[in-house]
Design a protein around this nucleic acid. Structure first.
Lengths: 252, 252
DNA sequence: GGGGATTTGTCCGTATGTATT
DNA sequence: TAATACATACGGACAAATCCC
């Protein structure tokens, strides 16, 4: 078998000391060797441990901080504390790629429809009792007409998330979550201006659809549930797309 | 309407100078104000521009470097050069989240099936001539039996990517691409050990499926194409899952 | 409440290595 | 080959924030 990289002057990227330290600590965090809220040793300690100067160590700190993997506090008993990687960081980078590719907002909505629609298919013919109970509980809260629009919207979001989580696929849940975070950031202005009668009406309509969906799932009519849900997603996207900019413009 | 954040001692995270500089430059990069391969001014220049010292500026450099948004070269006419955000960085962070959540490899394969299956549905009844031509061209190269297994595998990957790109949804393409990068990293060992007769056979079989898919699409039988493709994805996943570890373990 | 100890944030100066001319 | 330009890295210093007594 011929070598795929025959000879050629290979451009070697020499990794910098800060990168190596960040990679080392990152690996310990994602592999659960370091847990949430675990403190890192003081800078002076780590400087000795890695045999680097303070500026170099601090560069590593900034890398991990930008990835949300540590937070640093000053003062006595301060220092760096460890955090688990969060979906919104992944969403931020995905949003950067999309924005620099000139993606349109409709693309992102369509992707949400793909993921949430597929999640229902993944449920199979027999949705779990516990999952359905969870959805019912959320819908019960959503029925409360005392809520303001923002609270109602948050409950709606919770329903969408719980529905996808029922499918039991962490990857699909993560991707949907990322899309949700991007959409929330991209439509922030739209939502902030919402408050008119139109929004009230569509919120009530969405709530009714959520109830109807659970009914269909209880009856075991998953195909109908899938159709209803996809239509619901398409409708809610249309409402936003009617007034929002076509191009994706988002800062997370 | 009641305030959602009444009074309370709000934890204020004071952004560090390096973060602010990185955020500023990042925004200029993703918004296309700075283009691929554009040089950044020399450090001394930026130090004046942002009124910060060299260590602070260097921390900002490390942040952007870890995000793949700049590369820095030493020597005369060196300095920082701008790059567009790349999908593999987004994939890296998504992989971190999944790994720390204890996701299983099967989850990721299933997510691939969801995305690629949906892509065919998005094509609609009339796939574009140009897209079909592209797929045929890739298949033509795939027919060449002189290729070694790795080359054949790469052509297969190209087919999958081209198929999803035909759907014309940048978001779905990105998500699929991310999944692909994660899977490639997670099954690296498995692929490296491939070379036996079994792999030869399954590679040929995959190639035949790719040809068959294009035929079905040309005939306008998209439902059959969708079924065939989902089965193909499921089969190829099973082969890897039979020998690979169940837990997702990946370093990108 | 105040003072001291601890720890990070920022800065300066300097030496070293490397790539271009 | 030598000179130049630039980034890499180190050490030391002071300022600012935070906690404990």
């Amino acid at each position: 078998m011929a070598s795929r990289n025959p000879v050629g002057p290979v451009q070697l990227r020499i990794p910098k000391a800060a990168e190596l330290i960040a990679a080392h600590l990152r690996q310990r965090i994602v592999s659960d060797d370091l847990s949430e809220e675990d403190p890192l040793p003081p800078e002076s300690n780590l400087m000795q441990q890695f045999s680097v100067s303070r500026p170099t160590l601090r560069e590593a700190y900034r890398i991990l901080e930008s990835e949300g993997l540590i937070t640093v506090r000053r003062g006595a008993h301060g220092g760096a504390r460890v955090h688990k990687p969060r979906p919104d960081v992944a969403a931020r980078y995905a949003a950067h790629v999309l924005q620099s590719q000139g993606a349109r907002l409709k693309d992102v909505f369509d992707a949400r429809e793909v993921l949430e629609g597929a999640a229902i298919d993944l449920l199979g013919p027999k949705p779990s009792k516990a999952g359905l109970e969870r959805l019912r509980e959320i819908n019960l809260r959503g029925q409360d007409l005392e809520h303001d629009l923002l609270t109602a919207l948050e409950i709606h979001h919770e329903f969408h998330r719980a529905l996808v989580d029922m499918a039991g696929n962490l990857t699909v849940s993560l991707l949907r979550n990322m899309i949700d975070i991007i959409l929330e950031a991209a439509t922030e202005r739209h939502v902030a201006n919402a408050g008119g009668n139109e929004e009230q009406v569509s919120s009530r309509k969405a709530q009714r659809t959520h109830v109807k969906l659970v009914e269909l799932m209880e009856q075991g009519d998953l195909p109908a549930a899938g159709r209803l849900w996809r239509a619901h997603l398409s409708d809610s996207a249309k409402i936003v797309l009617a007034t929002a900019n076509s191009a994706l413009d988002v800062t997370i």
